[in-house]
Design a protein around this nucleic acid. Sequence first.
DNA 1: GTCTATACCGTGATAGAC
DNA 2: GTCTATCACGGTATAGAC
Lengths: 198, 198
Amino acid sequence: MTDSKESRGPRAKAAGKRRQLTAAAARVLHEQGVERTTIADIARAAEVPAGNVYYYFKTKDELVEAALSEHASHLETLTGRLDQLADPRERLKGLVDAWVSQRDTAARYGCPMGTLASELDKRAEGGLDLTAGRVIRQLLEWVEAQYRQIGVADPEGHALALVGAYQGMSLLSNALRDPEVMAREGARLTRELDSLGC
Amino acid sequence: MTDSKESRGPRAKAAGKRRQLTAAAARVLHEQGVERTTIADIARAAEVPAGNVYYYFKTKDELVEAALSEHASHLETLTGRLDQLADPRERLKGLVDAWVSQRDTAARYGCPMGTLASELDKRAEGGLDLTAGRVIRQLLEWVEAQYRQIGVADPEGHALALVGAYQGMSLLSNALRDPEVMAREGARLTRELDSLGC
DNA sequence: GTCTATACCGTGATAGAC
DNA sequence: GTCTATCACGGTATAGAC
């Protein structure tokens, strides 16, 4: 944790496997769901010896948390790239475009964060939460900031509506197994962004 | 199946337990999720002897299917009641009101159909689907019919947007553990319905 | 026709070999 | 420091008792 991952020797190998495992966890947990995914599934996907996983993650929950961080960092990368656009309205349209470009995955497995959120919510049994709500809140706040810069009234409400629309269209697209749902809804959202404050 | 449920004698008792079990299944599967729920959980909730469940349902999937039908019939009851309103616009506003009135449950466990849909989707492994998509499609079609009666352009698109907004706000409300999200979004949807075609 | 004891399997986790 | 043989538990489903 404290030292660089690419030092050399066995440490590098270990860090490599850990990264492989987190990446595989993010992918497989999304595709199969948390409860249906076994440690062995993740190990296989990461091409790591099966029982060996517990050396890197002491528990299954730790793997889930790692996957969550993975999604959070993907989100940060995306918003970071969008932040380089000058116009906040264009940034939001870019966000919608990014969502729509993932429509095939969404139709097959749903929104990565959304499906994780509902599953983890039912996992929290009094114990401490692996709250995916944190990541969603992060997204909401970024979107809200864009609306605020545009100067619209009730930026928080607008953010809820936009992110909610994303979650909704992902779920519908998944339930109906039809990526076109994402495309149609995405087009509508873009239109609404264009005609904002007219 | 062929004879009335309230005949008399042991048959009545059996039918009663079957109904108790489906009702309990619908409730518990929604609260805990399909994968985390054991047959024993449902038996306990239905106050039916544990191992005994298999007499009424040969497999867990049959219980899930029963729960699905339960939700479908709830939906039919609701739309049936709304159909008695004269104005299709009022019918849609009534639908939104019904959603918002369930906000506390949604904040705790998500939308019953929505969460089931994402879980069942990941359960379908090549085998035949316990597709919750059917129920959602049913809702979509009813909503679409209302928009068509109102005479708006692209009623299908409007239906997708409305039902999608519902699913989205349920998920966000659940992830953030905040029923107010439902109230705010519901108000927005009602406002949009009022100013439709102006 | 209704219910219960039990088989059997897959899972997460660990003690200890390399 | 890295990995594997093994355990104990809890789940679904069934054979057969009432």
